[in-house]
Amino acid sequence: MEENKTLTKHSPGYGIYILVWLALVTLTALTAAVAGISFGKFSIVVALIIAMVKSYLVLSEFMHLKFEMKAFRVFVVVAILFFLLLIVLLFQNYSYY
C-alpha cells in the first residue's frame, strides 16, 4: 500500500535552515528599525506584512509545508481564510457606525 510514502523523502541540508534563520533575524532587525519611523496609519501594516513574511518562511521551510501533500496547504489556507472572514464580518459592526 502506501507504506513507502510515510517517511518524508526529502532531507534538506543544514545550510538552507541557517539561511532561513538569517533571513528571519534580518527581518526582525528591519521591523524593529522601521518601528521608529512613523508611517502613521501604515506602520501597523508594515509591521504585519513583515510578520507575515516571517511566518511564511517558518511555515514553508521549518515546518516543511512545501514538501507536504497539497491537502496540508489547503488546510492552512482554509484556516487563515476562516480567520480573515471572522475579522471582516466582525468589523462590519465596529467600523460602520
Partner: peptide, 26 residues
C-alpha cells in the same frame, strides 16, 4: 520529533505576531 517541532514552530509564529503588536506600535 517532527510533530514536536511543528508545535514549537507554531509557538514561534505566534510570537512573531505578538512582538510587533505589543512592543512596536509606539
Amino acid at each position: 520529533l517532527e510533530n514536536a517541532g511543528l508545535y514549537w514552530h507554531l509557538v514561534d509564529i505566534i510570537w512573531i505576531f505578538l512582538f510587533p503588536l505589543f512592543y512596536l506600535i509606539t
